Simulated scan of single mutants.
Amino acid sequence: SILSKDWEINFLQCYPNGFLKYTDLCNILQLTAAAHAELGGISFRDMQEFNQAWVLSRMRVEINRLPKWRDAITVKTWINSLENSRSIRCLEMYIGDEKIIGCETFWAVFNTLTRRPENLALAHEHFQKFPQRATLSPFSKIDFQLNMIPVANHKVKLSDLDIVNHVNSVKYLEWCLDIIDCDVIQNQKIESFEMNYLKELSLHDEVKMSQKKKENFVTFSIQKDEKANFALQIILKK
């Protein structure tokens, strides 16, 4: 019940500086999680028999350093908890024996017809659960209610959607990183980031994006009709 999967970073996944994009980092982590779920019989294909899917609720990523083009990496993943409709999954990324990234994800079971959470219909007792965590800090409360400054608007396009027919989790991060100072990205100044998915977005939805900077924290919120759909908190290296 611990999966290790090897990847090689290709040029399509990299920024101009040759380092892995933060969005593609999240894609690799989620693809590894999906492979583990597939092996255990709780993948998207398995769950669709009951009109169910896993949707990401929270994600925390702590970065020691980013891999770069042509690096061979290994991602390890395991389930920390899985009860009823919720699960915490841990992931770690390695180059050789060096852990370079830790990630924890919080998932919910979602009915793709009713668009509501519900208990997992598939058996999952065969998955071994492991108490160890992959990040130094737990999920935190993101303060995105006060002193936020509007910075952009976005209308959801077809390219933003995934197989569950809502905005893919990585797209929210992409929208925010397209706004942040390029120097932060080009010089790998992100120490950690945490995302909170609050409400799904669909095709043609129009949203407002807001930002707040305080010390080494950068916070983003995405709202539709004044109601929060997503929050992101980035901690920069001092």
Rank of each mutant, 00 (worst) to 15 (best):
L31P: 01
I185D: 03
L113D: 08
D46I: 09
Y22N: 03
L39K: 07
R86V: 05
W175E: 04
Y197M: 10
K212A: 04
I88D: 05
E118P: 07
H204N: 15
E104Q: 13
E92L: 02
A134Q: 05
G18H: 05
I79Q: 10
V184M: 03
T114K: 14
E125I: 10
S202H: 14
L158F: 12
Q211T: 06
K199Q: 15
R45D: 05
M93Q: 07
I73V: 12
Y197A: 10
L173R: 02
F19M: 08
L161H: 13
Q211N: 08
K213C: 04
H126T: 15
F19T: 14
I235N: 15
W54M: 04
K76M: 02
E104K: 08
Q145T: 12
I180W: 09
R89T: 03
S210V: 11
F11R: 13
R89N: 02
A108I: 11
E62F: 03
I234C: 06
L82V: 02
P67G: 06
R58W: 10
Q211L: 14
P150Q: 08
R86K: 12
Q145K: 10
H204K: 15
E118A: 10
E206I: 11
G102P: 07
L39A: 12
I100R: 01
V151L: 13
R86C: 07
Q132R: 13
R45V: 03
K237V: 02
L31G: 05
W175F: 07
K141G: 03
K21P: 04
P150A: 06
F193R: 04
K208G: 15
S140Q: 10
A108N: 09
L146Y: 14
A123W: 04
F220N: 00
G96I: 06
P150G: 07
C90V: 01
D205C: 06
N147I: 05
D97T: 08
E38D: 09
I222R: 00
N119Y: 10
N64F: 12
R70F: 12
V184H: 07
Y15G: 09
N216R: 03
N147W: 11
I185W: 00
K213W: 05
S57E: 05
W7C: 07
I100S: 01
T105K: 03
K189D: 06
F139T: 00
P150R: 08
H36F: 04
S159W: 11
D183I: 02
L173Q: 03
S210G: 08
L136V: 12
W54G: 00
Y15L: 10
S1Q: 12
I163G: 09
S1V: 07
E206C: 11
S192T: 15
D71K: 01
L31H: 12
Q128L: 09
